[in-house]
């Protein structure tokens, strides 16, 4: 190649060190992010003797579902040995009404704050945005006392109320911002057509808010499923959610730790948010972005 080539067509793109470094960085960080998931998976399929031999990263020699079965139905949380399935169903019982009620209250509040000129509306909204940052520890003792007084402490209604209370700022923000982005003419047209407050909400606004509903559901399902502290305090011993049960299985066992069972139980607990995450794709990111623009 002595004679110079006459340049034509696309630029030649030699593999530059910068490009190699870029991919090296991405691959190494990807490994850092993936290793825990991988280790969880392989550990959960190993037998305890194999785990004791070491070799954290190795594939299971004889893959076994035994740990999964044990985690699901026989692992001990404290004295009871009914597996993490108890926590799973408790979490479902908490999740479904909490998601519905919190979104209903949040969307209604967001709607009322976006279209209706109610006195003090902007003060209410501003206050809700500020209190979203306050740590839960401030409220816990008074709330326990209040809930005990009105008789919903340690119950499903109690924990649903709690998730509604602490979901309110984000849900309100989400829906208010969405409704505020809709053309005000839509609202005016509905008023001219004679629709009232709740009619406009149910027949005009909510049908248009499907994208926000999806985002809100994703946000609340993952958030409530992953909750630990509120479930621990307010759900009551009978209704402890999966995260609490998981922590009990792993961290308060007596005798020998069954690491394969621990990892199987951990994966089972992570399954719901992981499925939501991978199924929802870009919606999840959108939810983060929508929830992130607080204030």
């Amino acid at each position: 190649m002595v004679a110079a080539v006459e340049p034509a067509g696309p630029r030649p793109r030699p593999v530059t060190p910068a490009r190699v470094g870029l991919y090296a960085f991405l691959v190494i960080t990807a490994l850092f992010f993936l290793t825990p998931l991988y280790v969880m998976l392989v550990t959960s399929f190993k037998t305890m003797p194999e785990i004791r031999q070491g070799n954290l990263l190795g594939l299971p020699a004889e893959p076994s579902l035994q740990a999964w079965g044990h985690a699901w139905s026989a692992a001990c949380t404290g004295l009871a040995c009914n597996g993490i399935s108890v926590g799973f169903f408790n979490s479902v019982k908490i999740l479904v009404p909490s998601v519905i009620v919190s979104i209903a209250v949040g969307s209604l509040t967001g709607y009322a704050l976006s279209f209706w000129r109610v006195r003090g509306a902007s003060a209410l909204f501003g206050a809700l945005m500020i209190v979203a940052f306050v740590p839960y520890q401030i409220f816990i003792y008074p709330l326990v006392r209040i809930f005990a007084t009105i008789g919903i402490n340690n119950s499903i209604p109690g924990i649903v109320a709690i998730h509604t209370i602490f979901g309110l700022p984000t849900m309100t923000l989400l829906f208010r911002n969405y409704f505020a982005s809709l053309p005000i003419e839509l609202f005016k047209a509905a008023r001219v057509d004679g629709a009232g407050f709740f009619r406009i909400y149910s027949s005009v606004m909510m049908p248009m808010a499907t994208p926000m509903l999806i985002v809100a559901v994703i946000l609340q399902v993952t958030g409530i499923w992953n909750d630990f502290i509120l479930g621990l305090v307010f759900a009551g011993r009978e209704n402890l959610p999966m995260t609490v049960q998981l922590n009990n299985i792993v961290n308060s066992t007596q005798g020998e730790r069954l690491y394969n069972v621990d990892m199987a139980a951990t994966l089972l607990t992570a399954l719901v948010p992981l499925v939501v995450y991978f199924a929802s794709g870009r919606w999840f990111v959108r939810g983060i972005a929508a929830g992130a623009v607080k204030g």
Binding site: V39, N226, N247, M263, P273
Partner: peptide, 18 residues
Amino acid sequence: LYPFSMSFIVTGLVWQWL
């Protein structure tokens, strides 16, 4: 991003093991 979808409990237990 997937770790962010999981709870701190799960995160803590995985890293405790690692």
